[in-house]
Amino acid sequence: MLLNFDRLGGWKWILLGITGLTSAFLILPIVFIAALSFGSSQWLIFPPPGWTLKWYAMFFADPRWLEAAGTSFYIAAIVTVLSVLIGLVASFGLVHGRFIGKEGLRALFLTPMILPVVVLAVALYAFFLRIGLNGTVTGFVIAHLVVALPFSILSITNALEGFDKSIEDAAVLCGASPLEAKLRITLPSISHGLFSAAVFSFLTSWDEVVLAIFMASPTLQTLPVKIWATLRQDLTPVIAAASTLLIVVTIALMLLVALLRKGLKS
């Protein structure tokens, strides 16, 4: 390696310091909100004067919060399934297909990643207004699918490119139909890519707030929208509890991915 950490001498400490500061910058807000969610103060005082689970109790006692969490989960689950299925089919085309404009199409599929979400949200809102999809689960799913698909396509095309097509060809010569070869040989071989695609699609929908605010109606809200709306009315620590729960799900899924990656390598 060009830069050997052990041989850096005094620089080592400076680098360590910068790494520490960056990590703190990224993690402290999360620690802060988690601490507040267990704090006994009604006014979100930091450091908390005492510890309590009251806010969590209130969260789980309030059907509106539970409903929002349920909606979030429901929409994220549908988005996950569709995103992986569509991403899989698209990736087969993008990686194994032979047609003109393949690279252009691949770039097009990834544009939602760089497009400002609010632009997308306004456009979808205006469009859905015409066809009556605002405030519906279908509208939510379509909106989140648009931003989730690029992650799905990226993960799956990556996995497919790392998979030697000759292996699928070998299965076909063994007598498996092209579809059977894909299902029995190719899919299991790229399962790590499918899994990443699923997790990233789920998370994209799970904590998405901009599109959700545009799609939401008083009767259909996801958890981030509910947090956002509650925040504007009063500053109750239940928000901190809801946020912490949101983050816990996210971190748990990321850990699962990391663990599976590690398991695959060893």
Binding site: S166, V172, L173, G175, S189, S191
Partner: peptide, 27 residues
């Protein structure tokens, strides 16, 4: 291809990675 009943060994290693040796031959 899949109905030609022809055997082939490729330049690259094409064993099915998630199957054991026995399962590969049984495929």
């Amino acid at each position: 291809s899949h109905k030609r009943n022809i055997g082939m060994v490729f330049q690259r290693y094409t064993l099915f990675p998630h199957l054991s040796v026995g399962e590969n031959i049984a495929f």
